[in-house]
């Protein structure tokens, strides 16, 4: 009976494989949101005035605050990777907790934004919404759909970061086995990337 080890076994720990896999997954995410951006641009092309008027309803200040929150949280994740690579587990964990706090702050802010609009009756099926001119309905539907899907990604990303914190505490994620942190970080940055486009397209077009 032969005993030999394939040098290219699929069962080895291979950070490069998981990173490549993560990037490929991010590509699918880009195209997932990409489909929505196509819808957005097409409808914007044929309803540009209505989109413009509808965007006055959004609060630039709140959008800007959320942008700052996300960019900062991206930095703390990136720094957590640096910290773990340098072997400073404690610091890395703290940075990740800060990231989580930012994620929650983002969601709270989003919650208020949505509820203000819903109080004004701007939601599919509500009175004010039904009275809007045609293109504006599309704008708000896309607004809810895209920011909603984005918020969902924030939640998923936060859960992953939670797992990373646990992993570092238990010693499963270390400077030598950093894949989980790196990949969660990549995912988090992608969420940030998408917001970078959502923000000007919904809040800043007026």
């Amino acid at each position: 009976m032969a005993h030999f080890v394939l040098p290219n076994s699929g069962h080895n720990y291979d950070p490069e494989s998981s990173k490549l896999g993560m990037w490929l997954f991010l590509f699918t995410e880009i195209l997932l949101f990409g489909g929505l951006f196509i819808v957005y641009f097409v409808y914007r092309t044929i309803n540009s005035d209505a989109f413009l008027r509808a965007s006055y309803e959004l609060n630039i200040t709140m959008g800007t605050i959320n942008t700052i929150i996300l960019i900062t949280s991206s930095m703390t994740v990136a720094m957590a990777i640096t910290a773990l690579q340098k072997g400073k587990e404690k610091f890395a964990i703290n940075l990740l907790w800060i990231t989580l706090l930012f994620a929650i702050a983002f969601l709270i802010n989003k919650y208020f934004e949505w509820s203000i609009k819903i109080e004004h009756g701007i939601f599919p099926g509500m009175e004010h919404y039904n009275g809007l001119e045609t293109g504006q309905k599309l704008y708000f539907f896309l607004y809810y759909f895209m920011t909603g899907l984005h918020a969902l990604h924030i939640i998923v990303g936060a859960i992953f970061i939670g797992f990373v914190i646990k992993g570092i505490q238990e010693g499963n994620v270390t400077a030598d086995r950093i894949s989980l942190l790196e990949n969660s970080g990549l995912y988090w940055h992608l969420v940030d990337l998408i917001w970078i486009y959502l923000f000007p397209l919904f809040y800043l077009i007026n």
Partner: peptide, 30 residues
């Protein structure tokens, strides 16, 4: 990898359409 997400999101829009009845692909609202 690159084509499937587009249909994924399109089908989700159909589901949302059916749930909220917006008429996303309806000429009556643009």
């Amino acid at each position: 990898l690159l084509a499937t997400p587009i249909i994924g999101i399109t089908l989700l829009m159909i589901v949302a359409e059916r749930a909220f009845g917006v008429g996303l692909f309806d000429p009556a609202i643009g």
